[in-house]
Design a protein around this nucleic acid. Structure first.
Lengths: 183, 183
DNA sequence: GCGGTTTCGCTACGATTAGTATCGATACCG
DNA sequence: CGGTATCGATACTAATCGTAGCGAAACCGC
């Protein structure tokens, strides 16, 4: 039985939201590499050791920040074209959020040669969307993973090359292309 | 007039190709972060200082390696569907090359907050393909940049999430999707 | 109020890395 | 052989990740 009683000892201060916000803000200002854990802690107003007590590494912290930043997808499951458009526009907004694209690229970089981090990435970030999209769009796992690659990959590549989010005309092309692909 | 006479002094040893090969091999084995310039130099058999005499930073070295790794696109300019398929399959092979995807992610990460590196990236890596594709496919700059985002972004996202190249079935879907999009 | 338990802030530290400085040795030209 | 530019090697600075240790603080049950 899940003992819902509070465990003994000093409770954790509830600063996760502030840490996530400071993480994105710092990455946006300085880039992934120069966004040190020290600076993120200072921006939050807590000690660096407190961050390392909650997340095992900088990559895990940033992945948790991305999971927190990407929220649940607002899909109806009724009109596939509408859901495809809604999902893509949701991704566009999320990736355009300051710091998100830089955080993504940094985590991808760290995940090379760090299987634990890649596992966290695939499980905590991609899996929830895979499940929701399979259900709402009625597609196979392979198909949904392909769509996620196309949408998020396209948006991240644009941000990586130009530093600017995708313009509306290209977003509309992306939506139409995937609506046709999934029809 | 380009004076073709050799400048005085000891000539540069022609080790660029070996450095590029060692860069990709080291990044493939250790990941971008742990692929230190020291290790790349040692794998090449030269001194670290020699590398810094030719490329101003690790990011510039890796970008040059990517430019060297991606070669010229074999397009005919006659059959658009065939050219689209050829270009995508060329990208698939290039991104699947050991170390290339990791190098890409690392350069994107470094390019955040390093405008000089981003300029090198866009100019030396993306521009040649933009021009060739605009010519061969007869498309606008905006359209070609969109296609590059979709193709390379999709392939890199798959590599970043799974560490494995895209399987043939997904490649075929990608080709068909873009052939329809550009018809 | 008091002991027990856990988290917090702080400081210090080891290991690793990017990039620079320096200097003697080396390779090529005329 | 002299002039010139590169090479190899070593040493160095400045960051950065992640860890260890310790006293202080917060909360609980009594």
């Amino acid at each position: 039985m899940a003992s819902s009683t509070r465990p003994p000892g000093r409770p954790r201060s509830s600063v996760d939201a502030e840490v996530f916000a400071a993480t994105l803000r710092t990455i946006d200002e300085l880039g992934y590499t120069r966004a040190t854990v020290d600076r993120i802690a200072a921006a939050t107003g807590i000690a660096k050791t407190t961050i390392y007590r909650r997340w095992p590494s900088k990559g895990a912290l940033v992945t948790a920040t991305l999971v927190d930043s990407f929220g649940p997808l607002p899909l109806t499951g009724k009109d596939r074209d509408a859901d495809v458009a809604a999902a893509i526009r949701y991704g566009v907004r999320a990736v355009a959020e300051p710091g998100v694209a830089a955080a993504f690229a940094g985590v991808f970089t760290d995940a090379i040669g760090d299987p634990a981090l890649r596992e966290i990435l695939a499980t905590q970030l991609q899996d929830p969307y895979r499940k929701v999209l399979m259900e709402a769009l009625g597609l196979s796992e392979q198909r949904v993973l392909f769509v996620i690659d196309v949408v998020i990959g396209t948006l991240l590549h644009r941000m990586g090359m130009t530093g600017e989010p995708m313009v509306e005309a290209d977003v509309q092309d992306l939506i139409r292309m995937l609506q046709r692909e999934l029809r």
